[in-house]
Amino acid sequence: MRLPHFEYFEPETLKSAVNLILKNKESKFLAGGTDLMPKFKKGVIRPEVLINIKEITGINSIKEEKNYLKIGALVTLGEIEDSPLINQVFPSIVEAAHSVATQQLRNTATLGGNLCQDTRCLYFDNSYLFGQSIWEKCFKRGGNVCHLVKKGKKCLAVYSGDVAPVLLALNAKVQVVGSSGKRLISLSEIYSGKGDNAFTLLPEELIAEIHVPKPKPSSYGTYVKFRERGSIDFPIVGIAAYLTINKDTIKDANIWLTSVGSAPVEAVEAESVLKGANISTDLIEKSANQAYQQIAPVPNHGYSAWYIKEMVKVFVKRALIKVMENARGGQS
């Protein structure tokens, strides 16, 4: 598969990157390219201009600040896995990064790209050359139908990034750079929840840094991913859980799920039964059941909604058990 022709830029500053997008209509940022390239090769997307942001200086390192860790958007998932600092402070970010794709992809895939990866749908991701070309354009291709839910009124393509749920559970913020300068917003704000237009960012806006607040004392977390094969695959469901535990009481709980909707989903009900309660097997069960009740997954990546929902229950439970074990072992 060969890429069609396109124009290519390598800006060295955030500002020129933003300006290049503003100047060129059908343009896209290119980071590691591991999400973008397959779609581009298949003709699913057709940018006329690619703006490689990897030469931009100052957004490719991991720095410790007083209250938070600053991770540049260009830091690769491989670098996260190898970072002694992240391993020490946020082992669950490492767990999540490590669970993405394959080692080769992680070595080029960036954190920014992971957070901003497009939503997925088997009806959308195929080549435009044959087969798909006669299907009526679905919402995500700019049309008015959905092939997944035949009379559906909107696109339900699924956000499947592995790292976002952990960062969301940690209340991470992202520094967004656009035409009017920089702003620091909560990571959750970048996800629109729409399958066909998954991000709230403007086309010219890009994420420069991710700020992860340092964990409160006695908080423990994990990322648990369920996938079909032991490698390569996106999650069937992925769960990040962070709990602050005092003695046997849960002070705070953050649970985020991926691959169950067009954006990462916070399991609010599951969190609320945990908050203030004493740890017990029953409690975990109850929390998992709440998540099960809340989540309405979309069967668009090869698994039925029924099955994904069941797995939500199973893996929320497993995630919570793992957090409790971490707590007992003193691992944050």
Binding site: M1, Y8, E10, L30, G32, G33, T34, M37, P38, K41, K42, L50, N52, K54, G78, A101, T102, Q103, Q104, L105, N107, T108, I232
Partner: peptide, 27 residues
């Protein structure tokens, strides 16, 4: 596969295994 899923095009870039089909040569 030419789509980043099989590893057949693995080469080392600065010592790290990467997929040559996913990387632009200009980069």
């Amino acid at each position: 596969c030419d789509l980043g899923s099989c590893g057949s095009c693995t080469v080392l870039m600065d010592g790290n295994a990467v997929l040559a089909c996913m990387i632009l040569a200009v980069d």
